[in-house]
Amino acid sequence: MGMVSVQQQKKIHPLKFIMWVAMASIVMMFAGLTSAYIIKSNQASWQEIKMPQLFWFSTGAILISSITIQMAVSSFKKGVLNKYRQLLGVTSVLGIVFVVLQLLGFQQLWDSGIQFRGVAGAGQFLYVVFGLHIVHVLGGIIALLIMAIQTIFFRTKTRTSISIEVAATYWHFVDLLWLYIIIFFLLIG
């Protein structure tokens, strides 16, 4: 066994580490946006909004999906591939449900008159911040779908659980990120 690998034993896997740093980076982007929100909300012509109820349902969907992906991790570790594949599917579907509910929420807001032209209040920030969060969720869904397809081809004996662990970490992260965002908008907005 090479020396790199000997050294590896004490340390976190590099790909997991990359994911942690990436999450810190993503946090900075949302911190930038929410800081901008705070500054902007103290200035002239700021407009508040009433949060559509739909966002509570989407919150439920993404919270449940965190549980299902964790179950997927443990089925993988137990080697129950069928269940693993199904749970990946369920998680992806919940992710898609989340995205759809978010978009429906946007539709409600839009119809209530919160649009783009000439203004920048809580509603416009909401479109940007929630929208960017959706992009991150979509990235996660694509990753899960790729992994689900991969299960058709791979031999379990030689596989490591790195991919699913990294994906699960990311999924929990977008979940927590969502909680941060929604709480932020409720408390500050």
């Binding site: 980076s25 000439g118 920048a120 940007v128």
Partner: peptide
């Protein structure tokens, strides 16, 4: 720090192309 610039650039894109007033 780059993600913060990215957040500024995204708001700028909204102002530029969608007419918002950030």
């Amino acid at each position: 720090s780059f993600p913060v610039l990215l957040s500024g650039a995204i708001l700028l894109l909204f102002d530029r192309n969608l007419g918002t007033s950030f």
